[in-house]
Design a protein around this nucleic acid. Sequence first.
DNA 1: GCCAACGTTGGC
DNA 2: GCCAACGTTGGC
Length: 157
Amino acid sequence: MSDKEINYWLMKSEPDVYSIKDLKNDIETLWDGIRNYQARNFMRSMKVGDRAFFYHSNTKPPGIVGLMEIIETKLVDPYQFDENSKYYDKNSNRNNPRWDCVKTKYLCEFQNMMTLKQLSETYTSEELTLVRKGNRLSIMPIQINIALELLAKLKKD
DNA sequence: GCCAACGTTGGC
DNA sequence: GCCAACGTTGGC
C-alpha cells in the first residue's frame, strides 16, 4: 500500500483500563468494546497500514501519548456474544455481528504527551474534532496534514 | 460532582 | 416520525 493512502485516526482509552504501557507490553491488541455506531463505522473504514494516535482519556492530564498501526481490520468483537461481559449485546446475531473491531500494533510512546489543553490551544474545533466540545467519540479521524504536524512535533520532543 | 452534548429508547 | 426521558462520555 502506498503512503498516500494511509489515514490517521485517534483512539481513546482510559489508562486504568488499557494504557500505552499495556500496549507496549502486549505489542498487539484487539481494540474491542466499541459500542457506538459512529465510532464503529470509523473503525470499519480503517485500512491495514493506517495509523492511530493513542489517547489517554479520563486521566490527568488527558492527551495523546503514543502511536499505533492498524494491522487487521473487520474482526468480530467476541465480547458481544459473551453474556458475562459488560459488552454483551443480546441483540447481536452471530450470522451478522453488530460490533466489530480492529487489531492494532504498538509503534511508539512519545517522550512527552501532547495534552488536550495543548491541542485545543493549537487547533480550532474545525481543524480537529477532538477539541470540539461535546465530542464523545472514542474513535475519530484526523486530517492528514494535522496528523503529520502532530507527528513532527511529538517526535522532535 | 457537575454538566454539556450526544445517542438511544419507547410511548404516542 | 416526533420527542421527552434517560443513559453515557469525558472534560473540568
